[in-house]
Amino acid sequence: MESLSNRSIQVSNKKMTFMERIYLPAIIGGMIVTFKHIFKKKATIKYPEQKRPVSDVYRGKHVLKRDENGAERCTACGLCAVACPAEAISMVAAERKNSEENLYREEKYAAVYEINMLRCIFCGLCEEACPKEAIFLTTEIVPTYFERKDFIYGKDRLVEQVDNRVDITKRQIKQSSNA
């Protein structure tokens, strides 16, 4: 059958000449290439001591943002979970009590919020779906662990610290006051 793309090359099985059979010229040619590469810039870096610069909109580990008063923005609406193509997000909602206004921004909040980092494909759809500007992906990389259960990130590892805020301003297309 003839190839439709016309790009296939027929394999030849021609007899090698004497020069080809002693292999020396080819070996020397190979050595020259190897030797040249010693002086070239290395393609690898010594991770984790060294880290590559990543784009501002790199999609790494998630963060659940707090608002300017330190209250959690997430209201457990479930839009991130429904947008997630990998089914990595799950949550349990709870009703805010009267004394908890400074902890949670809305009447409803996520009592449990879990992202399975083994399932997550870091597509950023959760970030896009979020109506409350609560979940963002960061430039931080999710490390590896020995146990599967370690990859299930709960609120303890997702919610940002009040005194150690995660800067996501570069990811936002426009700053909106009401979110």
């Binding site: 457990a76 609406c77 479930g78 979970a81 429904v82 909602a93 709870a94 009703e95 409803k108």
Partner: peptide, 9 residues
């Protein structure tokens, strides 16, 4: 049913 789940789940 208050805050138990979302209807689409």
């Amino acid at each position: 049913f208050r805050f138990k789940s979302r209807v689409w789940f």
